[in-house]
Design a protein around this nucleic acid. Structure first.
Lengths: 132, 132
DNA sequence: CTTGACTCCGTAGTATGCTACAGCCCTTAT
DNA sequence: ATAAGGGCTGTAGCATACTACGGAGTCAAG
């Protein structure tokens, strides 16, 4: 069974050593076994966990939510449906962010289109609009 | 010419008093005149500036960028075109965020669709996928 | 056996944008 | 006159997610 030092683990997961320690401090990574001299010793399962964290993060989950996902992963009470709900909740959040950004984009486009890059700045419709 | 205390100003702009002071500390709001007893005194122009900040913020500009916008607003060298470029740059940023979120949304939807909310959690495709 | 890379710990700093608090002074209404 | 409700300052805290640093001990290669 493979074992890793914190440096190996973090390079495998393409993550900073400090970040691994940080994750440990907030309970996202478990407290690992130690060598006699105090060095952290990680297993393949720990690497999997770290990758789980990274992947979840890329999907827009916060560390707090990932902590919950990790708990659900081992919790007896958690059902498949619970996990699906978690994903669907996140979809809703992402979707509402998208809609908000689209509104912002539209507003900016209107602003930009009103300005013809000529004339004195004092009459620039962008400034005029922002000042309203 | 209307004058405001910090409390009046902040309630007019629907912003926290502390936030106004914070904006002053980072140079986003100017150091206002003071009464003899040291109270801040604001003008209508200051209120306009505060609203400018709020509106820009709603359009996705960071405080740092707003600081620049405020500078451009009074800078002689700044042209209308510069402002338009600033807006277009922000449009690009917003657009790239939207595209990123759409990717995330799609990935989450695939994840959720694979799970039929039944069967043991140990075989939940959501977990399986996240563990890869 | 030495040297350099790695690890340890705790604390503090970064970035963003506020928000809260303590202990005091000032203003305004009753 | 007094009390409530502002306002003042400086510092610290919150939330998120790291990143850096100092001063030490440890391990492995040559």
């Amino acid at each position: 069974m493979k074992q890793f030092t914190v440096g190996k683990l973090s390079s495998e997961a393409e993550i900073n050593v400090e970040t691994v320690r940080y994750y440990e401090s907030i309970g996202l990574m478990p407290k690992p076994k130690r060598t006699e001299s105090g060095y952290r010793v990680y297993s393949e399962a720990d690497l999997g966990r770290l990758k789980f964290v990274k992947k979840s993060q890329r999907l827009g989950f916060t560390l707090k939510e990932i902590k919950e996902l990790l708990f659900m992963r081992i919790d007896e009470e958690t059902t498949c449906r619970d996990l699906k709900e978690m994903a669907e909740q996140k979809i809703k959040e992402v979707d509402s962010k998208i809609r908000e950004l689209k509104k912002i984009k539209k507003a900016l486009e209107i602003l930009a289109s009103q300005c013809h890059s000529s004339g004195p700045k004092s009459e620039c419709p962008i400034l005029e609009n922002l000042e309203k």
